[in-house]
Each structure stands twice: as C-alpha cells, then as structure tokens.
Design a protein around this nucleic acid. Structure first.
Lengths: 149, 149
DNA sequence: TTTAATCATTTGCATTTACAACTATTTTAA
DNA sequence: TTAAAATAGTTGTAAATGCAAATGATTAAA
C-alpha cells in the first residue's frame, strides 16, 4: 500500500475561508444599509426584532433558538431592543422563570420601514444565481453544518 | 405590470444564516482539535504561522493579504507568535518601514506536528462531497463574495 | 529640495463573542 | 414532601474584531 502525501491545501481551496469573508463582507453591507436608515439598529438587533414580530409573546429561549444565538447574547440584544422601546418583556404568569416578549407599535413601525431595505441587501450576494443554484447551495450548506454537528 | 409582494424570507432560506453557523461551528471544532495538541495555538495563530512558513521572509502586509486579516489583527497575531518563539521579525534593511517575518525552528517543528491534525479537521465539513461538488461549491462562494465586493 | 502623499506598522477603543458561573423557578423522583 | 435535576434568564470576564488615528519611513510632485 503506497503512501500518498496529502495534497497541501491552500487557504483559497477551503470553503470556510471564503465563507468567513462572505459573512464579514455581508455584515458590512447590512450594517451600512441599516445605518443609512438612521434607525440605530445593528444587524443582530434587526434579526431579533423581526423574529419577535413573527413570534409575538414567545420566550427568550425561543428567540435564541430561532436566531441561533446563545442565551447571554439573546438576553443582551433583547434588553437593547427593550431600551429602544421596540419590544417589551413581561413575566409569564404561568412560569415565572420565563419572560414573554412582545413587539411594540414603535417596533412594528420600524419593521415596516426597514423591511424593504433588508430585502434589498439580502439579495445582493445571490445576484445571478438561478433558483436551482440557490436551492443546491442551501442543501450543500446544510450538509456541511450537519457534518460538523 | 402587477406588483408581486416579495416573498417573506425566513432565516433558514438565507445562505448567510447557515454560513454563520458553519463558520462558528468549524471554529469550535478546529479550536478543540488544536487545543488537544497542547500547543497553545489559536486557529488564527495557526493560519498565520503556516502562512509565514510558506512565505518565509515576507512582510506583515503580505501575511495580512494572504490570510485576509486587517493590519492591526495581523500585527497582534504575529506578536503572539513571536512571543511564543515560533516566528521572528527583523527590520527590512531595504525599507525600514517593513518587518520581514521568519519561521523559527521551533515554529517549523510545530507546523510539522500540527499539520496532520489540521488536515484532519479541515476535511470534516466536506465529508461526502464529491470533487465536482466541492469545485462547484467553491465557485458559488467566489461568486457570492464577488457580488458583495 | 521641500512638501505632500503614500505606505507599513502600531496603538487605542468600543463592540462583540464565547464560556462559565450564578440566581430563581419549576419539574422529577425518591 | 422534600431533595435533586433541569430550565430560563442574567452577569462577569477574557479574548477577538473592526475602525480610527498615530508614528515613522519612503516616494512623488511641485
């Protein structure tokens, strides 16, 4: 059995290497687009805000799960949004460990205003990708994450 | 011309959403694998160390370019590696703004020791991907980054 | 040649992040 | 019913990151 020396991998051949750049650059684009709206909202704050809007009254754990952020991060982002009066928290009378999180009217108005902006920058990275290519890409990414789990 | 309401995008339909998780999870796997070697080396430190090894005597700017890290980050990682005696810096007599960066013997030995470990965890995310799929994935990622540039 | 512009590197700072530890509450099970 | 385990959320901290600005050196231009 012959030993074959493993091919030296250059960084540019590693998907992760590119993904890191894409994620970083995308964040810059998103941050800039949100910043231009003078809403004082970070990308993460937007994601959580939107998620609260779609799951009004849910717990922080649920928000953390759906946005894939850990508990401390979720707590802090939610507090930031509460301080901006975009959402509110209220102790769950059924389970006094939990807080139920609600969108405020101000929060709803902000979502309505920012949604078009977000939808615009979200399509930037996939410009020129066919539906098929997008689906395929998503599948590949899910496979990669599954491999790492 | 009829207005079509943009499809509400869920997070799970965004490639970036998955990429963030993949990158984070991959870092955990890599950090753990390196940690198990008791080398006291972070993932970023490894990448820079390896890059210095492949470009012995080059400047910090060049290291930063090849690893896609900004100047302050590059400076700090290089200093960490210098403190561990894995690399050394030396003023370039031709251009006294630049430092030339060299691998030490200790650095070379560490690379030799860690390389198999790194090659092992690097292939984890792509398990089950054919050559063709890997090439295609890389192409797609490059396209995405290009769209964002 | 002197000034201005550019370049390589460093420093400082504000923000983010991951991780561990802690409190309070509820659930489980002995 | 009471002790142990699990759950929801919070706090603290060390490290990483991104950005802006500063320093020292070189190059380009007036």
């Amino acid at each position: 059995m012959q030993m074959i020396k493993a091919k030296e991998q250059r960084l540019e051949q590693l998907p992760i290497f590119w993904m890191e750049q894409i994620v970083r650059r995308y964040r810059q684009v998103a941050t800039q687009a949100l910043g231009a709206e003078e809403a004082g909202l970070s990308v993460d704050q937007w994601v959580v805000l939107k998620q609260v809007g779609e799951n009004n009254g849910c717990s922080q754990v649920e928000i953390g799960n759906s946005t894939v952020k850990d508990a401390p991060t979720t707590t802090r982002i939610i507090d930031q949004l509460v301080n901006k009066n975009l959402i509110s928290k209220q102790l769950d009378p059924e389970d006094r460990r939990r807080y139920m999180v609600f969108l405020t009217e101000k929060g709803q108005r902000l979502i309505d205003r920012l949604l078009p902006v977000v939808q615009e920058y979200r399509q930037i990275p996939l410009q020129g990708f066919s539906e098929t290519e997008q689906k395929q890409l998503l599948e590949n990414l899910k496979r990669m994450l599954h491999n790492l789990a």
